[in-house]
Amino acid sequence: MTRPTTDAVLEIDALSKTFGGVTALDAFTMSVRRGDIVGLLGPNGSGKTTSFNAVTGIFPPSGGTVRFDGADITGLSPQKVYAAGIARTFQRSRLCLPLSIFDNIMIGNHGRLTKGLWFNLMRRRAFRREFEQGYEDARALVRTFSTALADRLFEPVGALPMIERRRIEICRALISRPRLLLLDEPSAGMTHDETTQLMDDILDVRGRIEGLSIIIIEHEMGVIERITDQCVVLNYGRKICEGPYAHIAADPEVQRAYLGAE
């Protein structure tokens, strides 16, 4: 089944990544339409996180192209990929634990902060205005997830439970107003109820931000069924199936590879 790609925000074409002799990603092709939530599935080691890392420039792909909003972003540095409008979270939480919630979210806002030394050190009045603006933005964003958390912005992240950390991580990715959000297993290490809450948050965020597309790596089938518009299944670095949840769930190869059916 082919989908129209005219409104595609992200087009990955024949993307490959090899580490020495190991092919982690093998001619992987997928596209994401504007406003869609796409689930990326596959057993452990099937290349899901590798595809995120290759897209965001953590390491350069071995082959293939990545186009974002029509522009070729293949092999760009992480900084440039971020500047283009792609933000992500990480499988293993990568927050700065000793820093405050506000600090962590502002790291995500780096692209819009004034970084000049003179401005930061000497023009303290102007800095204060920028700080207050940042505070209002961060607070408004955190409030969409949790009002209680929005009143604790100057507490260290290290003291928070996992679900709050995940929320902060998503806020850090969203504050830069990206057009594409990559969520790498946001439910890892959380209980069933926490996962449900977080997915509600994600759906809510998608509803609020016009045109935001999301790719989410997730293992739990119930979650995938509930929140995704499209799914892509990987196995041994290769795409084995794509389509809406009902389609991939019924696919015999997916069942063999992923659901563990004989």
């Binding site: 965001t56 420039g57 953590i58 540095s77 992480p78 900084q79 990929v81 971020y82 500047a83 933000a87 992500r88 990480f90 990568r94 927050l95 700065c96 634990l97 000793p98 820093l99 600090d103 502002m106 790291i107 995500g108 780096h110 692209g111 902060l113 004034t114 970084k115 030394l117 930061n120 050190l121 800095f127 920028e130 850090r172 830069s176």
Partner: peptide, 22 residues
């Protein structure tokens, strides 16, 4: 300042920092 925040981010996690444009 934002500069201090940037330095902290680089110390604590340079991979994540790079992904946010630092």
């Amino acid at each position: 300042s934002w500069v201090g925040l940037t330095l902290d981010a680089v110390r604590l996690d340079d991979t994540a920092s790079a992904c946010f444009g630092i």
